[in-house]
Simulated scan of single mutants.
Amino acid sequence: MLSSITLVLLFQVAGELVARLFGLPVPGPVLGMVFMLFAFLLKDNLIDSVRPTAGVLLANLSLLFVPAGVGIMRHVDRFLTEGVAIAVTIVLSTILAMLATAWTILWVQKRMHLSDED
Rank of each mutant, 00 (worst) to 15 (best):
1 M>W: 08
1 M>Q: 09
4 S>V: 00
6 T>L: 13
8 V>K: 11
10 L>K: 05
11 F>N: 02
11 F>Q: 02
11 F>L: 02
12 Q>S: 12
12 Q>G: 10
14 A>Y: 03
15 G>W: 01
15 G>F: 00
16 E>A: 11
16 E>N: 09
16 E>V: 02
17 L>S: 08
17 L>K: 12
18 V>A: 13
20 R>G: 03
20 R>S: 13
21 L>A: 11
22 F>R: 14
22 F>H: 11
23 G>I: 01
23 G>Y: 05
23 G>S: 04
24 L>T: 01
24 L>V: 01
24 L>F: 01
25 P>Y: 05
26 V>I: 15
26 V>M: 12
28 G>E: 08
28 G>I: 01
28 G>Q: 07
28 G>Y: 05
29 P>C: 00
29 P>G: 02
30 V>W: 05
31 L>Q: 04
33 M>N: 10
34 V>I: 14
35 F>N: 03
35 F>P: 03
35 F>Q: 03
37 L>D: 06
37 L>M: 11
40 F>I: 04
41 L>T: 04
42 L>S: 12
42 L>H: 08
43 K>C: 03
44 D>A: 09
45 N>D: 15
45 N>M: 07
46 L>N: 08
46 L>D: 07
47 I>A: 15
49 S>R: 14
49 S>E: 14
50 V>R: 01
51 R>F: 08
53 T>D: 04
55 G>T: 02
56 V>D: 03
57 L>W: 00
58 L>I: 06
59 A>Q: 12
60 N>V: 04
60 N>L: 08
60 N>H: 07
62 S>E: 14
62 S>L: 11
63 L>C: 01
63 L>R: 09
63 L>Y: 14
64 L>C: 06
65 F>E: 13
65 F>G: 05
65 F>V: 11
66 V>D: 05
66 V>G: 03
66 V>K: 07
66 V>F: 04
68 A>G: 09
68 A>P: 01
69 G>M: 13
71 G>W: 02
71 G>A: 06
71 G>N: 04
72 I>T: 10
73 M>N: 08
73 M>Q: 09
73 M>T: 03
74 R>S: 07
75 H>M: 14
75 H>K: 15
75 H>D: 15
79 F>A: 03
79 F>Y: 15
81 T>Y: 06
82 E>R: 14
82 E>I: 00
83 G>V: 00
87 A>C: 04
88 V>R: 07
89 T>G: 12
89 T>N: 13
89 T>L: 15
90 I>C: 02
92 L>H: 02
92 L>P: 00
93 S>L: 12
95 I>R: 06
101 T>S: 10
101 T>K: 09
102 A>G: 05
104 T>N: 12
105 I>T: 07
106 L>P: 00
107 W>Q: 11
107 W>Y: 14
107 W>V: 05
108 V>T: 08
109 Q>A: 13
110 K>T: 05
110 K>I: 01
111 R>E: 15
111 R>H: 12
112 M>E: 14
115 S>K: 12
115 S>L: 09
115 S>E: 14
116 D>L: 15
117 E>P: 00
